[in-house]
Design a protein around this nucleic acid. Structure first.
Lengths: 301, 301
DNA sequence: GCTTTAATTCTGGAAAAGAGATTTTCATTG
DNA sequence: CAATGAAAATCTCTTTTCCAGAATTAAAGC
């Protein structure tokens, strides 16, 4: 029983899907299947019941889930406990609006409990600006969206900035176009029946991905909003299509099932300067790494 | 950080020696060294201070030790919790006198706490008899000494019986000849200056190993004793040499440092019938496996 | 009934682990 | 103080395990 198997198990348990879990932990589905089977054999118990293509936890799986969370939490605590110098001071973290909303609450809470001496400064912004701020030492690290390859080739400046930084994938977002209710299903941007795209500020990578996609067939104006809540409200009025990752949409229990279109997966990167590694940053890095594949519901230690 | 690294760490921490730990966990010393170094790099902290050839835990090592014990205990608990059917009924365990004295107290206590519904019957005896009893279904399993290859070739009956059973190494004992105080150091049986060997019953594998060793040069009579305490008392009288594993000798805080001679390592096997696997046995098997490399002091969970 | 999507199985290549030999280091001893 | 012995570390080679991608199978949706 090794801890990486448990991380994989947690991802499958929380997503109830091998494919999604594989993305979450950055592996290939066949590998996830194998590791789960190994774990089951090792424990001598069936953890999931495979009725059709759904993976649902069995009774034993549920009890193991509790232990799995405790084990991960304990392992993380052990790591932090042996840290030679306890982190303190200030840590300046930049993040996209979406990541702050959907991914950070759990790890930030945990980090804050573990290291109350660190004062954590959170800055929200667009990926480009955040990357620049990290380079300029205005931020210690940032969570930004990795632009797809075609976009990187168009924006060599940004690409060069990224290359100057250390980076690491921590989440994978499923970027969506959110359509007004009643809008017919779409296969491409040409099928859009709205007057505009609703997105955040111009530097936002998600916005630029959506604009690139829309540009291929039609030429829609983009209306700028201050928050994802504002975007969704706009979409509800019926004449605009919103841009946001699925994880954010999932947070806002929307009354009816919304029509969405997938723009594909977009990686969220943790970027930081190559040279400097303040103690508070490595602690943050570690907490983020330990939390990434896991359920938002944290285990009672 | 995987649990096998932690098992290795616990062994090194408890033995304060790479070589001994390697024997305890059934690996080669170079491997233990590497795994400890990996663990240290992974944690970003020094766990041991290598002053000379002693491995002493550092401050960080001490704090990690506590977590390591908790992690192992939690992992074991998780295993047991997902066991589909809670074990109950009776489990008949055979064991050598020496194993019962030095190795079993910790796992038996743990097993008893975990599965109070299982009534555990412990039978003491010589390896040969125990193996036979397992075959005859008088016992569910037994802890016996594996005779060295030369002895197995002389005793084909016993060898055949062993082959009919499932077996697994759980401990490695350092078999000793214990000499009276004042006896000169010996290099072989020819240097013995005593009138007899003190051992347990004739079927005892340790006794037979010692007799084989003594036979090569001299021909000493063996006097039979009922317990290791009796053997040690006999040795103290001055005219006999005792046979016992180091782990047993270590238990009996003897007034003065005794003169000993090593007869070499002898594996302790857990043997059981190939076919039948009562639930209580697999639980016992698991507890034994989890405890084998560890310190006797159990962790508070 | 065909298409789509998800899980599993299979297979080849890459990475990691383990064993044994060698070297280094330190304590012990003559 | 040099020689010896024992224990840890290093190195190299073999074996095992792990992982990605392709092929396969099975179920759900249209």
């Amino acid at each position: 029983m090794d801890l990486s198997s448990i991380e994989i198990f947690l991802a499958v348990a929380s997503d109830r899907s091998v494919t999604k879990a594989a993305k979450a932990v950055g592996r290939v589905p066949s590998n996830v299947t194998t590791r789960i089977q190994q774990l089951e054999e090792d424990l001598g118990a069936c953890l999931f019941s495979r009725d059709g293509k759904k993976m649902t936890l069995t009774r034993e799986g549920e009890t193991f889930l509790a232990y799995a969370n405790r084990l991960m939490a304990l392992a993380l605590e052990a790591r932090q406990a042996v840290r030679p110098l306890a982190p303190s001071g200030t840590l300046r973290v930049g993040t996209m609006e979406s990541t702050a909303a959907s991914r950070l609450p759990a790890p930030l809470t945990q980090f804050n409990q573990m290291w109350p001496d660190v004062s954590l400064h959170l800055t929200m912004g667009a990926s480009r600006d955040l990357a620049r701020d990290v380079l300029a030492d205005v931020l210690d690290c940032a969570l930004i969206a990795r632009p797809p390859k075609t976009m990187r080739e168009e924006d060599l400046d940004f690409d060069a900035e990224l290359k100057a930084l250390e980076m690491e994938t921590v989440f994978v977002e499923d970027l969506l176009i959110v359509l007004p209710s009643g809008h017919p299903a779409i296969k491409s941007a040409a099928d859009l029946r709205v007057g505009s795209l609703a997105a955040l500020e111009p530097g936002c990578t998600y916005r630029r991905i959506a604009e690139n996609w829309a540009r291929t067939s039609s030429s829609l104006p983009t209306t700028e909003h201050g928050s994802y809540h504002a975007i969704l409200a706009s979409v509800a009025t019926g004449n605009t299509a919103g841009v946001m990752p699925r994880s954010v949409l999932d947070l806002m229990h929307w009354p009816t099932a919304v029509q969405t279109h997938q723009l594909g997966p977009v990686e969220t990167l943790l970027v930081y300067r190559k040279d400097d590694c303040p103690s508070a940053f490595s602690a943050f890095h570690e907490v983020l790494g330990a939390t990434k594949g896991r359920d938002v519901r944290l285990a009672a230690n």
